[in-house]
Design a binder for these strands. Structure first.
Lengths: 101, 101
DNA sequence: CTCCTATATAAGTAAACACTTATACAGGAT
DNA sequence: ATCCTGTATAAGTGTTTACTTATATAGGAG
């Protein structure tokens, strides 16, 4: 794998908010609307973080009406898998959560 | 492992010059004087990169007279190992190289 | 001691980054 | 059609990063 791609993926991983987003995806697909409120940042900031993860090939997106669902990409590089494996999963949409999406 | 430590190590890895330095260490200990000239940056820049790798716990240093030798730390986190595994080793001190150290 | 070499630190700078608020866009509901 | 909601983009700002040159430090050689 090209070293420039490795660098790009590492830069995408090297941020605590993006690591938290990935930890939320460990258990499967998540609606983006769940993230607003989980992180102490604004909705545009979440959107910008997700774009960076997508451009690095780490997540994929699925549009469903007004909502967007994100998940970990298939066939991630071993080192990306290893980083995510090292994160504790963060449950989203717990019982009583917002279930519109 | 604490997510802040993960973030710090990822930030230390997420730079093409530091990845190149690590690739030089895949085959074992290297004298720092070998790096000056391998990378297209100045000696202080190399020193600053090595400090960042050391502060993240990714490399260890050994002082030998005027020279300093660096190597990959023992017991690296699995994801750090995975990143380094993905790099192609870069040979230093090839035949005909500077053998003072 | 003085000189030289290897490395570290200081100080300054330009670019990249992560955030904000404001606004635009897209789709469903009425 | 209008309104509302979820998400994206634009523009601006403060912080961090990676580099430079200049200088300091440490250790061996003479």
């Amino acid at each position: 794998m090209d070293i420039h791609v490795i660098e790009k993926q590492l830069k995408a991983l090297a941020d605590i908010n993006r690591l938290t987003l990935l930890a939320c995806m460990k258990n499967g697909e998540v609606c983006v609307c769940q993230f607003v409120g989980v992180l102490p940042i604004s909705q545009p900031a979440v959107s910008q973080h997700l774009r960076k993860l997508r451009e690095a090939g780490i997540i994929t997106e699925r549009k469903a009406g007004n909502w967007k669902h994100v998940r970990l990409a298939e066939g991630l590089s071993p080192f990306v898998e290893a980083v995510i494996d090292g994160l504790d999963a963060i449950p989203v949409c717990p019982d009583g959560g917002d279930m519109r999406c």
